[in-house]
Design a protein around this nucleic acid. Structure first.
Length: 87
DNA sequence: CGTATGACGTGCA
DNA sequence: GTGCACGCCATAC
């Protein structure tokens, strides 16, 4: 269990600039585990840190995916961030 | 230590 | 383009 992986993922997500989105696969890739995008979602779900804009992490399909505070809230936040590239 | 689960991704019909 | 099934990693129990 790479604890570093979790920290890395959180750090990378926190590095996402406003108005930008990243797919789970991209985050996992930057974290060093391009095949761990499955765990990325699990980590974010267990992590409720406000410093982690997990709402900026979307699926590779361009869909918002889910959110610990509600998918609607996620979409709303992205729209507020001027990220209307959602499908 | 083994099984089950989950914010997913890809392939095939 | 849509829908279903399988595979994947890390974490929790």
């Amino acid at each position: 269990m790479e604890k570093d992986f979790k920290e890395k993922v959180l750090k990378i997500v926190s590095k996402i600039n406003k108005g930008e989105t990243m797919s789970y696969k991209e985050v996992a890739r930057l974290a060093g585990k391009p095949k761990a995008w499955r765990a990325v979602g699990n980590i974010l779900k267990n992590n409720y840190d406000n410093k982690i804009p997990c709402h900026r992490v979307v699926l590779s399909n361009g869909r918002p995916g889910k959110y610990n505070r509600g998918v609607q809230n996620k979409i709303k936040l992205l729209k507020k961030e001027k990220v209307k590239n959602l499908k």
